[in-house]
């Protein structure tokens, strides 16, 4: 039995067709990445899994329980960390977590688990502080704890690391990795390709409400995804003409800054610099940037065409 089974899901918001027949399964114990640019429909899909939204067509099961017909069971198996940094300003961290645990029918016997979540997410010194007074990163950690109060088998994190500082991102990764080791099924949506690369066994890519790719991370990387990187080249003077051989690699150009999209295997930075120098450019600075998902899509669709 799969952890999550998604069948022919369509979702319309009025005239907007946000999900167009999405279908895939997440196996138990998997670390699954759900990727896609803004507006692809990731959050909508997650909301349907959690019952926050209703599918227009299709059905979803969590560990065999239909998320509409058998929601009591599906929601007990499911912990969702929402994308939005929501919180209840009336309560402290501990109150928030104990109340959440109570909604699932758990009482004082669950307090020890709640305390261990507080510890595990490094919230101990904020446990009795009102939610309002917490930093964004702290609030994010409370959201993660809240999703786990009832010890769900399947954990879905909707962009948990967006807008989060490097330190917290790392500690969240460690925490989620430990959850996965404990046997939890993890579904992670993210904007950071490197994050998905480092953590996920399999990746689904959603684009315009459709599944654009679904494969093991390894196989996707072998298809060249992840091989792209961007190089930001600064020159002393704005370039009048860009050499023919670099034309199709331009991502953006602004004054004396030129961003090229290169393939890690096929293009050599040294060659690129030589070409520029031969064209009379005086390169003053060079930075490489990690490719973001938008680049991956360009690459995916370009690869599909050629």
């Amino acid at each position: 039995m799969p952890a999550i089974s998604i069948r022919a899901i369509h979702k319309r918001f009025g005239s907007l067709h946000a999900l167009k027949g999405v279908e895939f399964q997440v196996e138990q114990g998997e670390f699954f990445g759900l990727l896609g640019p803004n507006g692809a429909g990731k959050s909508t899909l997650i909301n349907i899994i959690g019952g926050l939204a209703r599918a227009t067509e299709g059905s979803i099961e969590v560990l065999g329980h239909d998320v509409v017909g058998d929601y009591r069971h599906s929601r007990r198996q499911l912990g969702i960390v929402p994308q939005e940094l929501v919180f209840d300003p009336f309560f402290t961290v501990r109150e928030t977590l104990r109340i959440q645990s109570g909604y699932f029918g758990l009482g004082r016997e669950n307090d020890a688990w709640v305390d261990s979540l507080i510890d595990g997410l490094k919230l101990s010194d904020k446990a009795d502080v009102n939610m309002r007074l917490l930093s964004g990163g702290m609030k994010r950690r409370v959201l993660v704890a809240q999703a786990l109060v009832h010890r769900p088998k399947v954990v879905v994190l909707d962009e948990p690391t967006a807008g989060v500082d490097v330190e917290l991102r790392k500690s969240l990764w460690e925490f989620v990795k430990a959850l996965h080791k404990d046997g939890h099924t993890i579904v992670l949506t993210t904007h950071y390709l490197e994050e998905a690369e480092a953590l996920c066994d399999r990746i689904a890519i959603l684009h315009h409400g459709m599944l654009a790719a679904l494969d093991t991370t390894k196989a996707l990387l072998a298809r060249g995804i992840g091989n792209i990187r961007c190089v930001n080249i600064k020159t002393s003077e704005p370039l009048a003409v860009i050499p023919e051989s670099l034309q199709h690699k331009i991502k953006s150009q602004d004054g004396n800054s030129l961003v090229l999209q290169l393939n890690r295997e096929e293009d050599s930075i040294v060659n690129v610099l030589d070409v520029l120098r031969n064209a009379g450019a005086n390169v003053t600075d060079l930075e490489t940037e990690v490719a973001d998902l938008e680049d991956v899509f360009l690459e995916l669709t370009a690869a599909g065409r050629s």
Partner: peptide, 13 residues
């Protein structure tokens, strides 16, 4: 504020 999701995500009928 959006915190209604904390109730909507639970098995409460």
């Amino acid at each position: 504020t959006g915190n209604i999701v904390f109730i909507l995500l639970t098995p409460l009928s």
